[in-house]
Nucleic acid binder design. Structure first.
Lengths: 194, 194
DNA sequence: GGGAGCATGTAACGGGTTACATGATTGG
DNA sequence: CCAATCATGTAACCCGTTACATGCTCCC
């Protein structure tokens, strides 16, 4: 038994990519991007495709994934990646040991409302309404995502997370509506009578 | 009348810093950082102090802020910044015209739950509990922030946003609790009998 | 005397994006 | 035949962070 190697400190994105491969499937970078767009995206953003390729190469260098080149290799062919036992073990240890950073939220809509004293009330209302529509769109997309997850073997946790997501965006929608009411109360009198 | 100059495309952080100065106060970089930590932080993250200094220099170069050096200038003295009319106008136009990007959320807790098939259930529960505690802490801090905003002249919109924040983190707390229940239902039987 | 807070700034570095380059396959 | 999608990768660039350097003032 060799002493446990220290975990390389990958960016969270690296672990996320490795995580996408931890469900036992063999996937290409392109596949990973598409899947990230319908899963990670709702609670973690989806990395650019170029970054995924970069992380895959790094993970390969660490021995956490292995690539199989489909078809004759003329330098630009489809590469299918699979997680290795070492990769799975590293990911487990990351989940055990790595400290949980607080969620990062960059909410442009709220930044705008915060600066409401400089904005046209109508534009402000419109901004918040757009956000409500966005939240509703997310709910719809998540419903599809959940339907898939709930009918896939061994996807209990992804399904759990999509349920969380539906509630989260429902809360966003409700908060937007409450915000609209408060905005109206604040300056409804001054702008409604035109 | 000169034709309207195109808005320089600053990173959102630049507009946020300019926004901090749009309440008519004269503030130092250091002040801005402290204030960002008790306001922007709850819905938009707080930039590093070094970045604030950088943005201030850029805004100065654009004529959007002006600096007054307090005390004799020996190259390292307190500089107080104030927004200029051009800066305020630019900020107004940004609020009017710039498209609203969707909120960016990087939720490490959810990423971990998503990978729950690789995690020890006890650790997972602990992670979610930590998050619940985090949400509660945010609520407390926001209550203080709101109390300040609600008793400050012309802080109606910041006060509105802190109210939104309290509701947002209350929702986060509730979602964490629901998640804990679902986790227990998923594997309560298999891990409780040890 | 020394630590905490005030105050400003530079340098190195990494993360992540967009734009670009390249080409195969599939379906209307 | 042409557009969309599949598929991989490089280069330039910017955003933002951490670490470091510097020094003052206030208060115990």
């Amino acid at each position: 038994m060799t002493p446990p190697e220290p975990l390389p400190d990958l960016p969270a994105t690296g672990w996320a990519v490795l995580g996408l491969l931890s469900f036992g499937r063999e996937l290409s970078g392109y596949d990973l991007k598409k899947w990230a767009d319908t899963s990670l995206r709702f609670f973690y953003w989806s990395p650019a495709i170029s970054q995924i390729y970069g992380e895959l190469r790094r993970l390969d260098g660490l021995g956490f994934v292995e690539a199989r080149t489909a078809a004759q290799d003329d330098l630009r062919n489809k590469r299918l990646y699979r997680i290795t036992p070492a990769g799975e073990q590293a990911l487990r240890r990351w989940l055990q040991d790595a400290p949980v950073e607080p969620p990062l939220l960059k909410h442009g809509v709220l930044l705008r409302v915060w600066l409401g004293h400089l904005a046209d009330p109508a534009i402000l209302r419109d901004t918040v309404e757009q956000h409500r529509a966005y939240a509703e769109r997310m709910i719809e997309e998540l419903a599809i995502s959940r339907a898939v997850a709930e009918t896939t073997e061994d996807f209990n946790y992804p399904a759990l997370v999509t349920r969380w997501g539906e509630r989260y965006y429902a809360a966003e929608r409700d908060l937007a509506e409450e915000m609209l009411r408060e905005l109206e109360a604040m300056n409804g009198r001054t702008s409604k009578e035109s």
